[in-house]
């Protein structure tokens, strides 16, 4: 699967969508809800179900990171599944809001 900045991916088992902000170093398997994600323009495999162990959910506008591979994702659409890279749960990247300047 292609992980370049801007690549859009969707969960195969819930409504979640993400966009790659920073690609990983090396190969990873990115999963959402316990199943590998699908490139946005392709059809997701059928018959899969959200895994009970990966239902933490993702929120739109939040960024998620895998410290080990350097992967950073922006969630562009919320979903019930949670994200893992090679089985490692991605963590929420805390960002301090800045005063509005535009």
């Amino acid at each position: 699967m292609e992980f370049k900045p801007g690549s859009r991916l969707k969960s195969s088992v819930c409504s979640a969508e993400v966009v790659v902000v920073r690609p990983p170093t090396g190969d990873i398997v990115l999963e959402c809800g316990g199943h590998p994600v699908t490139p946005i323009a392709e059809a997701a495999p059928e018959g899969l179900a959200l895994s009970a162990d990966h239902q933490g959910g993702v929120a739109a506008g939040k960024r998620y990171v895998d410290a080990e591979s350097g992967l950073e994702l922006l969630c562009s659409k919320a979903g019930q599944g949670s994200l893992t890279a090679n089985g490692r749960p991605l963590t929420l990247k805390e960002a301090k809001p800045l005063p509005s300047s535009d």
């Binding site: 801007g6 790659v20 739109a60 506008g61 562009s76």
Partner: peptide, 14 residues
């Protein structure tokens, strides 16, 4: 990432 996704996200969420 594409600037139009910013609007897509806003339209999806609110």
């Amino acid at each position: 990432m594409h600037t139009s996704l910013l609007l897509e996200m806003a339209a999806g969420a609110f």
